[in-house]
Computed example of a mutant assay.
Amino acid sequence: MTAYVIGNITVKDPDKWAEYRSLVPETLVPWSGELVLRGTRAKVLSGHYRHTDTVVIRFPDSDSVANWHNSPAYQALVPLRTQAADVDLVTFEAD
């Protein structure tokens, strides 16, 4: 079952965030992750949304998500991510 990672992001340091963003795609390759969307908030249509950016990544299944997230390659980027932005990552399985 296809799984998605959605990141809701508030950028703190644009330069570090740009560096982090440039390094993430190569960590997706072993797990067949595909970057679907990288976007900045255009307009809140309903409710409250505190973040500035969003990312959506598609994976073949939940195991691939877990393997990517726990991989040494991605975990090596987590300290940079933490310095660059406040990020809430969630995963969903598609029906």
Rank of each mutant, 00 (worst) to 15 (best):
13 D>N: 15
13 D>E: 14
15 D>S: 09
15 D>Q: 09
15 D>L: 02
15 D>I: 02
15 D>G: 06
15 D>W: 01
16 K>L: 08
16 K>E: 08
16 K>R: 12
17 W>G: 06
18 A>W: 00
18 A>R: 04
20 Y>C: 04
21 R>A: 15
21 R>F: 00
21 R>N: 15
22 S>R: 14
22 S>G: 13
22 S>F: 00
22 S>K: 13
23 L>I: 05
24 V>E: 05
24 V>I: 13
24 V>Y: 03
25 P>L: 10
25 P>W: 02
25 P>F: 04
26 E>A: 15
27 T>Q: 08
27 T>P: 03
27 T>H: 01
27 T>N: 02
28 L>P: 02
28 L>W: 00
28 L>K: 05
29 V>Y: 01
30 P>Y: 04
30 P>W: 01
31 W>F: 06
31 W>R: 03
31 W>A: 07
33 G>V: 06
34 E>C: 08
34 E>N: 10
34 E>T: 09
34 E>H: 03
35 L>Y: 00
35 L>K: 09
35 L>D: 05
35 L>H: 03
35 L>C: 13
35 L>S: 08
36 V>D: 04
36 V>M: 06
36 V>Q: 03
36 V>E: 04
36 V>I: 13
37 L>N: 03
37 L>S: 14
37 L>Y: 02
38 R>N: 10
39 G>Y: 02
39 G>F: 04
39 G>Q: 05
39 G>V: 07
39 G>S: 11
41 R>Q: 15
41 R>P: 09
41 R>K: 15
41 R>V: 11
42 A>M: 09
43 K>I: 13
43 K>V: 10
43 K>Q: 14
43 K>M: 15
44 V>D: 07
44 V>C: 10
44 V>H: 06
45 L>Y: 01
45 L>E: 07
46 S>D: 08
46 S>Y: 05
47 G>M: 11
47 G>T: 09
47 G>F: 01
48 H>R: 13
48 H>Q: 12
50 R>W: 04
50 R>H: 04
51 H>T: 12
52 T>D: 02
53 D>H: 15
53 D>L: 10
54 T>G: 05
54 T>K: 04
55 V>A: 14
56 V>Y: 00
56 V>P: 00
56 V>W: 00
57 I>F: 00
57 I>L: 07
58 R>A: 13
58 R>D: 06
59 F>T: 02
59 F>C: 00
60 P>L: 04
60 P>S: 05
61 D>G: 01
62 S>M: 11
63 D>Y: 09
63 D>G: 09
64 S>H: 06
64 S>R: 03
65 V>E: 02
65 V>L: 05
66 A>K: 10
66 A>L: 13
66 A>W: 02
66 A>H: 01
66 A>F: 00
67 N>R: 15
67 N>K: 13
68 W>F: 13
68 W>G: 02
69 H>F: 06
69 H>C: 02
69 H>K: 09
70 N>F: 08
71 S>I: 11
72 P>F: 05
73 A>F: 00
75 Q>M: 11
75 Q>E: 10
76 A>I: 05
76 A>S: 14
